[in-house]
Design a protein around this nucleic acid. Structure first.
Lengths: 266, 266
DNA sequence: CGCCGCATTGACGTTCGTCAAGTCTAGTGG
DNA sequence: CCACTAGACTTGACGAACGTCAATGCGGCG
């Protein structure tokens, strides 16, 4: 890992300057809280899913260190050398790709237990930015170590393949959404997806706080922030959701589902 | 593999009824042409990329059998049990996902040397259809065998990871396209991408024959077939391409590139 | 030779983007 | 503690891009 002092953009430096503490690397030693997948409360969601005790012991070697990432700061940038995958322990991220002419597209929002960095494997460099939308903590898993342990622990090998396959399938869903849904359908699908993932993490299935701006939602869903806002207002008028800025209450999840899949009339 | 008689849809059965020969499984034996990655003319593009002679010998064990797929027939369907990845030896495929209410979205077009089936790993069942757009032949690589050999051949392990990562990155690009480009930009990007991949396979960099309909292009690019057609006509009027049905001649590739990345005025 | 699927083109309508004005809220500093 | 401000959000009016519907043309296959 040598010295992995994070490279900062000007914007990030400004954010950091205002913030109390700098990005800090938490080394894995006796002083810090124990970094072990086997005792992590996310083990049913994250890397160790479906492993037995013995396999778990090996996977504990995966996480080299942890790192905290302040809101607005990037975990990695486009072009940065790829070394590791990151498991999100807490917090919320967005990933986005950027074109030369300045357009950018949010490719996903990630929450606790999800793995980011997979884009970097193919060319040894990251091809997107990962930016924390709230203060976050990630487990750093050096990829060469993942490959090494995968060779010995079949269940881990298969799990890594599954994680990558899951990301591919997720993106198929986003392509479907972007390619053939209208604004209301997109936003309904987005809300249902978010709330479903939050529920899997023990949160309410009807209440959520958006960690991203209307513009970021719009970028992800291929629409403008005004359209996102108008669509929220429409849902609100129709009594399907209650919207108070970023605080969302889902009043009628079935109605949202019907927007996406209009039920057959017969 | 037990008996892998392909499951046919009614539409496919109709196509097959018209076609001379049924889908046939080519067993790997002395009679059939040798099935060996090491002597395949696609080895610089496909699975064996970057392996040394010894590693190549191991990879030769990967391909169990080959299979021919007639135009219009699917290699696998949504919901079908996942067993193998497929390397395209010849021909052209599309993959598409379908919603309950009948909408479908083409998620990609694949040509010789590319790998399909990655979507099936996560749930042990395929989540999209792969349909041949022209008569094709694929190498069947049972996934458990891929995992087995990956454990012993590090270069193969890493290559598999790269293939999956490449697919993730490709899909990021499609999301960018669908989320923030206009019709002309989408079609220009599509043409440039196709021609670039064809060129890597030794075809002309200015001439190509589309294997898919306007509707399939439209589905992939998130626009209607009429818009695809109109945009082709516009490119043609502007002298950038010559369009004769599915035969496309690229007259000014730079102009196409400028559509996507309008060059700065200074 | 005729049919059928695919492609093209035109006229018109809808959805969403653009531009602009105004409101709300959290965070800052006095 | 409160006023101020910047950024985020909402809402309206208007227009452009693209979808829809429909008529017509073309080319490959039986």
């Amino acid at each position: 890992m040598s010295d992995s002092a994070p490279i900062l953009t000007a914007a990030e430096a400004a954010i950091l300057a205002k913030s109390q503490t700098a990005v800090k690397i938490v080394p894995m030693n006796k002083e810090s809280i124990k970094v072990a997948c086997s005792s992590c409360n996310l083990r049913e969601l994250c890397m160790p899913v479906g492993l037995n005790t013995e396999e778990l012991a090996r996977v504990d070697e995966l996480v080299a260190t942890r790192r905290t990432v302040k809101r607005g700061i990037s975990l990695f940038h486009t072009g940065e050398k790829f070394t590791s995958l990151y498991a999100i322990r807490s917090g919320f991220f967005k990933t986005c790709v950027t074109t030369e002419d300045g357009r950018d597209q949010v490719t996903g929002f990630q929450m606790a237990g999800e793995i980011i960095g997979l884009d970097g494997i193919v060319n040894d460099h990251h091809t997107c930015d990962a930016i924390a939308l709230e203060d976050a903590e990630v487990c750093i898993m050096p990829f060469d170590r993942i490959e090494e342990i995968s060779r010995e622990v079949n269940a881990l090998q298969h799990h890594v393949h599954k994680i990558m396959s899951r990301e591919i399938v997720r993106e198929h869903g986003v392509m479907l959404l972007l390619g053939s849904m209208r604004a209301e359908e997109r936003l309904a699908a987005f809300l249902l997806n978010l709330v479903q993932r939050l529920q899997a993490r023990g949160f309410s299935k009807s209440e959520l706080i958006l960690r991203m701006t209307r513009e970021e939602i719009g970028s992800y869903l291929g629409m403008k922030l005004e359209t996102v806002s108008r669509t929220f207002s429409k849902f609100s008028e129709d009594g399907m959701v209650e919207v108070k800025q970023r605080h969302i209450q889902i009043r009628d999840a079935d109605a949202l589902r019907r927007i996406i899949n209009p039920q057959p009339c017969h």
